[in-house]
Amino acid sequence: MEKYYGWGLPIDISTHGYGIDRIIHIMHAAMALLFIGWFVFLIYVLFRFRARKHPVAIHDVKHFKFPTIVEVGVAVFEAILLAAFSFPIWVHLHDQLPSKEKALEVRVVAEQFAWNIHYPGRDGVFGRTDAKMMDAANPLGLDKADPAAADDVTTINQMHVPVDKPILAHLSAKDVIHSFYLPVMRIKQDAVPGQSIPVWFQAKATGDFEIACAQLCGLGHYRMKGYFVVDTPDKFDAWFLENEPKLLK
């Protein structure tokens, strides 16, 4: 797994991640430019105007115009960054959800300290769930009486998705706030109890990755790990068949 994660950003296997990485890179280049320029000036001034070499200070220093230009430049740069880079990605991720026909829909239900993954199965309809029916054997509280639930696939800490297909995940939490974090997918989204928050992504490479929790959720927060496996469509289908409820086979 080492190869995915180095000292820079983790590898990016998502279709949208390049936009996020680009804004991080542009921002840091600009910050470095600003800081180094500013820092060199600071050192120069400290050297030039040290008391030993410059015993008498100047009371009335002329007005500097350059800083105003820099400040305006920073403001314009920030405006461009917002309008051209930040807003479009946000809109893409939050307002342009893939249609249910095209995407694989899945529910992700977080709890202390595990990720429950709920696939709707062949009918594409999630079976009814009820908090009252939740127990150790049925952590999602899936109502077996509901016909739509019969073909649903549920897993714990195992999220398999096919490559090159949009995934639409509905995030929720059973107990406290968690945060669904896929480092290689540039996805991080809080799962808030009482809400269902949609998040979508599409992988462009296969591999075995991790789901991490990014919001302190209790003593086991640090080990709230899930496996995120991106498969070829064939392999994914095979995995899915294997995990389908027995009665269907």
């Binding site: 804004i23 921002m27 930040s86 480092p183």
Partner: peptide, 23 residues
Amino acid sequence: FGVGGLTGLPLGLATADIHLHDT
């Protein structure tokens, strides 16, 4: 303070914050 202030900018951009939030 310059370093602290500048590094606030990527966090203030919601998009970059997706990766950097809570890290």
